[in-house]
């Protein structure tokens, strides 16, 4: 898919890219919160939350990678 044949005007593409950027930032903040909350729980002796939180962070990372690929397809260099 190239910018010319994806059916979007430059303005539409700009909105899409801004939306993707916003989502990636939101997910990144979620990952940061997840890490700090897990560290807090771990230091407090709650060991059960660490692996579910790690898997959740991995899912967030996969989502971010997917969004990054979409951004790359919408906006090739």
């Amino acid at each position: 898919m190239s910018p010319a044949d994806d059916g979007h005007t430059p303005d539409q593409r700009g909105i899409l890219l801004d939306g993707i950027l916003f989502l990636v930032g939101l997910i990144l903040m979620l990952q940061l919160w997840l890490l700090t909350a897990t560290m807090e729980a771990f230091l407090g002796g709650d060991l059960e939350i660490a692996w579910p939180a790690a898997l959740a962070s991995l899912a967030c990372q996969a989502l971010n990678l997917g969004l990054w690929r979409i951004l790359g397809a919408l906006d090739p260099r």
Binding site: M39, A54, L58, Q61, L71
Partner: peptide
């Protein structure tokens, strides 16, 4: 270009968070 690079930076930062998260898992 800045937007792409900024997004890449955020994705890589998220990857670092994920690695740290698994580090906490191993420590637990």
């Amino acid at each position: 270009v800045s937007r792409r690079d900024f997004t890449r930076l955020m994705v890589l930062t998220g990857l670092a968070f994920t690695v740290a998260q698994f580090g906490v898992g191993l420590a637990s």
